[in-house]
């Protein structure tokens, strides 16, 4: 999705690749917390770690 600088026609946020929280371009708080990892935007380091942990856990789980 492309974003409009004037906020008239498209929202000025992206979604965290893990938890789906809105990460606003103009929010200083969001900017300070967000992390770009594995080619995706995450709202925080917690989400990067959670996604990695989940992936590892599910990969290790026996297939049913």
């Amino acid at each position: 999705m492309k974003f409009s600088g004037n906020r008239f026609y498209i929202e000025s946020y992206t979604k965290c690749a893990n938890c789906g929280t809105l990460v606003y371009d103009d929010s200083p708080e969001d900017k300070a917390r967000k992390v770009v990892a594995d080619g995706a935007t995450y709202c925080s380091q917690w989400c990067v770690d959670w996604a990695h942990e989940r992936e590892a856990r599910r990969a290790a789980a026996p297939k049913t």
């Binding site: 999705m1 929202e11 979604k15 965290c16 690749a17 893990n18 938890c19 789906g20 959670w50």
Partner: peptide
């Protein structure tokens, strides 16, 4: 409580 709702799914719809 933390919620993980991946975007683009039935639990977190995208425009």
């Amino acid at each position: 409580i933390r919620v993980v709702a991946p975007p683009g799914t039935i639990v977190n719809v995208d425009f």
